[in-house]
């Protein structure tokens, strides 16, 4: 698999031979179990939220593009918007046997890529971050790690065997959250 060469691991002996790499595009969500890896590339103002049940090593990822206050026309999935995305993700995890009280959340993304001096609004990225935090709070899912904001794009890899989220950005050190 093309991603294998980029796979970062804590110990060189760890074997990823049995793991699948699942790529999640904008407005999509996926749920799987260890030892799979979920990745998402090129997050700008979009935000990735991961939910993980460490007891059962089941996790899921949603690639969210809009805060919950915004209505969408035309074709869209529950994963486009913060509120419906998190609800759908929690449900999908429970469907795989995860327990709500054991779930923890992490998030990455929500950048502002172009600093427009004419526009003083916080931008879609910041709205996404706020919205997701509110939804998680309402659902009672603790947010245990985040790498958000800034003016640069991110790519992420979510390791279901450890629950670790690796955040990469061009010209920056990889971050593990």
């Amino acid at each position: 698999m093309a991603y294998q060469k980029n796979v970062m691991c804590d110990s060189p002996v760890r074997d990823f031979a049995d793991s699948q790499v699942l790529e999640v595009a904008i407005g999509e969500g996926v749920v799987t179990k260890a030892p799979d890896i979920i990745c998402s590339k090129g997050l700008g103002s979009c935000v990735v939220v991961t939910l993980y049940d460490a007891q059962r090593r089941i996790g899921g990822l949603a690639h969210i593009m809009l805060p919950h206050s915004v209505s969408l026309n035309g074709h869209h999935t529950p994963y486009h918007r913060a509120d419906t995305a998190i609800a759908a993700l929690v449900k999908a995890l429970q469907g795989k046997g995860a327990r709500r009280q054991d779930m923890v959340a992490k998030m990455a993304g929500g950048a502002r890529m172009f600093s427009d001096y004419q526009d003083s609004s916080p931008g879609i990225g910041a709205e996404n971050i706020m919205s997701i935090k509110n939804v998680l709070k309402r659902k009672g899912v603790p947010l245990i790690g985040e790498d958000v904001g800034g003016n640069y794009g991110r790519s992420i890899e979510f390791y279901l065997d450890s629950g670790k989220l690796i955040v990469r950005a061009i010209g920056k050190e990889d971050r593990v959250i």
Partner: peptide
């Protein structure tokens, strides 16, 4: 306004703002 980064990350804010994602 100029920025250098991954293409997807540069476009998504505009596509979202214009509701043109799909």
């Amino acid at each position: 306004i100029v920025a250098v980064d991954m293409i997807q990350s540069l476009l998504d804010e505009s596509l979202v703002a214009l509701r043109r994602q799909i």
